[in-house]
Simulated scan of single mutants.
Amino acid sequence: MNNLEILEKAIGYDFKDKKLLIQALTHPSVCEKVDSRDFLGDYQRLEFLGDAVLQLVLSHKLYLMFPEFPEGRLTVTRTELVKRKTLAKLGKDLNLGSFLVLGHGAEKSGGRIRDSIISDAFEAIIGAIFLDGGYRAVKKCILSLFDKLIHESANSSSEVNPKGALQEILQAESQVPPEYSIVNIHGPEHDRTFECVVKHMGIELGRGSGKRKKEAETQAALVALQNIRKSKKL
């Protein structure tokens, strides 16, 4: 059994076109050192595709699994499943780092254990499976790989923390925390509604409202999480 077969067994999918799997494992740093005529390409385009496929499959699963969840709660749960830390953990469980094709610089800087590279390659593999076997095949793989995490979400008794989830996503890119501010108060004193804006480094991420300040902040965080996933800016 060669290295690719070992990885395929761990993933639970046998590629018809092995070149797709090789491409999904190839870091962009490699392209600087190879003859372009023989180069299959790096994983960046497959990563783009895999991200979208993951979003679709997991969104559908969560929609069916949690009929009582409103849109915001579904968004937060999905965000937890597809964040970098989660994907890197799944990739490390597959021993993905040992199969990566890295350039000298990425190899020397510890690329085989770096969360950002492993999570990118994980998404690229999902994209490669989709191209090689279609939606049914990739859906089967995703649900198998995420089965434990999805059921942990279903069985968790604790409430999802939108503000905590937002801060974790933002601080993966920057140490600057989000800022919440009440920008409007509507209604009579006995029945007020607070409007909150959450910003990061001066950029507005979302707005929310509620009967209490904390509720307004939570709603603003939920909207921000939705906007982040839609824009993919962070």
Rank of each mutant, 00 (worst) to 15 (best):
D120I: 04
D120Y: 08
A121R: 07
A121V: 10
E123N: 13
E123L: 14
E123K: 15
A124S: 11
I125C: 12
I125Q: 12
I126W: 15
G127T: 07
G127Y: 07
I129S: 07
I129C: 14
F130R: 06
F130W: 15
F130N: 02
L131F: 06
L131D: 04
D132N: 10
G133P: 05
G134L: 09
Y135C: 05
Y135L: 12
Y135W: 15
Y135D: 03
R136I: 03
R136C: 05
R136M: 07
R136S: 09
A137Q: 05
K139M: 09
K139W: 11
C141F: 05
C141M: 02
C141I: 01
C141H: 00
I142C: 13
I142K: 14
I142M: 13
L143A: 00
L143G: 01
S144V: 02
S144P: 09
L145W: 00
L145G: 00
F146L: 02
F146E: 00
K148H: 08
K148P: 01
L149S: 13
H151L: 12
H151V: 02
E152F: 01
S153Q: 01
A154V: 13
A154N: 07
N155D: 15
N155F: 15
S156F: 09
S156P: 12
S156W: 08
S157T: 05
S157A: 08
S158L: 09
S158M: 07
S158Q: 05
E159P: 06
V160D: 09
V160Y: 11
V160N: 11
N161T: 03
G164A: 10
A165F: 01
A165T: 08
L166D: 03
L166T: 07
L166Q: 06
L166Y: 02
Q167I: 01
E168A: 14
E168S: 13
I169P: 00
L170H: 11
L170T: 06
Q171C: 13
A172P: 07
A172S: 14
Q175P: 08
V176E: 13
V176M: 11
P177Q: 06
P177I: 04
P177F: 13
E179D: 04
E179C: 04
E179M: 06
E179Y: 14
S181Y: 05
I182Q: 11
I182L: 14
V183P: 08
N184K: 13
I185T: 11
I185N: 06
I185R: 08
H186L: 15
G187E: 09
G187R: 05
P188A: 00
P188K: 01
E189M: 09
